[in-house]
């Protein structure tokens, strides 16, 4: 039996990747299950998915806490989520990154494969969706499934969801990634800024969860506490602001769904401040700016 944990973001297709891997392993005569961490995450929020593969029927219905492999669809997640948490010492990390395995920093030094899946995806699919490309890297790095089986798995799972034409493009992304995957060892000792969860006993939780604003050792809870949730890492593109072109019409401030643009200064010195720790990079501000004062850049 081997167990794989995928780390991605809502909308990146981590679940489909986990399913396609299961399908690929099944093509080779294995029993395989794939499942999401059942959440309600929106696009961009960190998500997980899991694949278990064995020769015989798998009975376990729990989440995977000590994976043999972790697959990270977006290397920015490494600073947000402890992706190597529980990863076996003999395990391996497969990461979408433009860097070499030796330059990757995780919680522990383990075997590591990297592939610039974002670039591969942009070239083959025209979109930065990396769930198929990363499977090519998995096949190359682990040797547990052949690239032909991965292609079959993608055609099976992606084909059912998005049609044969797009599935073929995704299969091509996997094949392209297979060719450019690098395998080595990453650095260990990285401590990610993991926020502890506020998990009081039942008698310390507000009755029925009716909650006032509270400062807890784990941060703010209750009304207004979402300010602690920094959504800025979700973005692929970031707004670049040119104050010289800005006429302070405030349309971007008004439209920003994330309230990430603030007005600062007084009188003629008034200007806008972009709070990248919240900005999700949607680009509405740049699209609506009447003076082209905002550009989106990767």
């Amino acid at each position: 039996m081997y167990e794989v944990r995928f780390h991605g973001r809502g909308g990146q297709g981590a679940v489909m990747a986990a399913q396609a891997l299961a399908s690929a392993a099944f093509q080779e005569g294995n029993y395989a299950v794939a499942f999401p961490y059942f959440g309600a995450e929106r696009r961009g929020a960190p998500v997980m998915a899991f694949t278990r593969v064995d020769k015989d029927k798998i009975f376990s219905k729990t989440l995977i806490y000590e994976p043999d492999y972790i697959v990270v669809l977006d290397d920015k997640l490494c600073g947000l989520v402890d992706v190597s948490d529980g990863l076996k010492d003999s395990g391996m990390a497969i990461i979408n990154s433009a860097e070499k395995p030796e330059d990757i920093k995780l919680g522990k030094a383990v075997k590591c494969a990297t592939v610039d899946a974002t670039t591969v995806a942009l070239e083959t699919l025209g979109q930065p969706i990396t769930n198929s490309a990363i499977l090519g890297a998995f096949a190359k790095a682990t040797g547990l499934v052949s690239i032909d089986s991965v292609v079959e798995g993608i055609m099976d799972i992606f084909g059912n969801r998005i049609g044969e034409r797009l599935a073929t493009k995704n299969a091509n992304a996997a094949k392209a990634a297979y060719e450019v995957t690098q395998v080595g060892t990453c650095q260990g000792g990285f401590e990610c800024e993991k926020a502890d969860k506020w998990l009081p006993g039942y008698d310390e939780l507000p009755l029925g969860l009716a909650t006032r604003p509270m400062e807890t050792p784990e941060g703010l809870v209750g009304p207004g506490s979402f300010v602690d949730n920094k959504t800025g890492s979700w973005k692929t593109f970031a707004p670049i602001y040119d104050p010289d072109k800005c006429i302070m019409c405030r349309m971007c401030w008004f439209y920003c769904p994330d309230g990430a643009i603030k007005e600062v200064g007084e009188g003629d010195a008034k200007t806008l401040e972009f709070h990248h720790e919240y900005c999700k990079g949607c680009g509405i501000c740049a699209n609506e700016c009447p003076k082209d004062a905002i550009k989106m850049e990767r």
Binding site: G10, G11, E41, R42, R43, G44, A45, G224, F226, V227, D228, N229, K230, T231, W234, K235, P257, D258, G259, A260, H275, Y278, K280, G281, C282, G283, I284
Partner: peptide
């Protein structure tokens, strides 16, 4: 209605 909410990027 503060920042830090988890709507998809570009949500209306």
């Amino acid at each position: 209605f503060t920042s830090g909410h988890t709507a998809c990027g570009g949500c209306g």
